[in-house]
Structures are given as structure tokens and as C-alpha cells.
Amino acid sequence: MRILLVEDETELAVALRAALTRRGFVVDWVPDLDQARAAIQEAEFRAVLLDRRLPDGDGVTLLPAIRALPDPPPVILLTARALIAERVEGLDAGADDYLAKPFEIDELLARLRAVSRRRGNGAVEPLALGALRFDPAHREASVHGQPLHLPRRELALLDLLLRRAGRVVQRDAIEAALFGFDDAPLSNTLDAHVSRLRRRLTESEAGVVIHALRGVGYLVKAG
């Protein structure tokens, strides 16, 4: 997976490139907007890591050029501080995600995976967690290679939770995705679906746990 890193801080860029390279990414590093503009024309990247404070301007100004590419790669903005206003501004300008320095490499990898999945229209990568694999394109789940048959709503629920594995998916979002206006759920309908899905995952030894956070939502993680 080829990534463009736009960062003027040499030491940080070198360390970041080394860390990403070790994880199998191919990283091209440019220190300013000018070279970044040239780079995106020359090569095709699967993602762009873009610093905001660059010697020749705000990283955000590169976003239109990236959006104009035939197959625009997702962009993660890197900045010294995730001021909400700055974040909104960056996301409005067309960035896919935002990461505040100092960040941890695992956090960056998670974001990279998330944005590249989100962008992969058509070729959606399968989601995997524990022994569970889920193919969002075909809505098929399997455990240890064995197909796991799930009703429509539980499939949709699994899809939602897996896409944000390790993070909390709020009840409102799940209810909105699972139930239409015509079949507004009773307050415990969702809990019933969750407990059925949970039982099926345990029975099939998927190595996946669904945690409930009272009043907030659910979270799925390996365990």
C-alpha cells in the first residue's frame, strides 16, 4: 500500500516512514506543498498523510488538487492540535480523518485502515476480527472459514459494529441503520437483537465479544 507523507519535520517524517515501512507500507515523503503537488501527479497513492503547518502554506490547500485526481486517495490530516474548529475546517475541505500530534503509531494505522476501507468503493475489503470474517459487499459472515448464517438485522448490526471495531457505536446510529421509520423499535428490541447475535458468536467460538455500555451503545472487540 503506497502512501504519500507530506511533513516538513524531518525527524518525525523519517521515524514515521520507518515505522510504516516496517508494517509493509510503501512511503513516499515530501516536505512541502510544492513537491506534494508534483508527487500526486506522478504516482498513485492509496492514502495521503498531510501535515497542516507546512513551510509553503496550510496543508488543507492541497486538498482540492487531491480531490481532482481521477481516483482520489483518502487524506488524513496531521496537526499539532486537534482544535475542533480546525478539525471541522479540515473535514469540510475534504479530508477523511484527522489525527492530532503526538499520536501513536497504532492509532495512525487504525485510521489508515479505516479511511482506506471507507474509500474502497466497489472493492470493499473484508472485515476481520478474532476468528470472524465479514464481507460487507456480499453480507457474508464466517468463523474459522465456516459460514455463519445470520438474519438480516443481525448481519446489519455486525456490519456496523465491525466497521468500528474497538470503538463504541451509539444506539441512535444502530437503531437508525437497523430499523426504518415504519418499524420503529421498542426500547428493548435492539437489546434482543444484540443478545441473539452475541449468543451466536459465542456458540460459534468467533473470538469476538460485544460489550454493552449502558445508555450509550455497543462495542465489539476480539477477546
Binding site: 519535520e9 525527524e11 518525525l12 521515524a15 514515521l16 520507518a18 515505522a19 499539532a80 500530534k101 503526538p102 499520536f103 501513536e104 503509531i105
Partner: peptide, 8 residues
């Protein structure tokens, strides 16, 4: 920045 570099 140095903390970020340290972390990486």
C-alpha cells in the same frame, strides 16, 4: 514534535 518522534 519530539514526543511524537519519541513515540514513533
Amino acid at each position: 514534535t519530539p514526543v511524537a518522534i519519541l513515540g514513533i
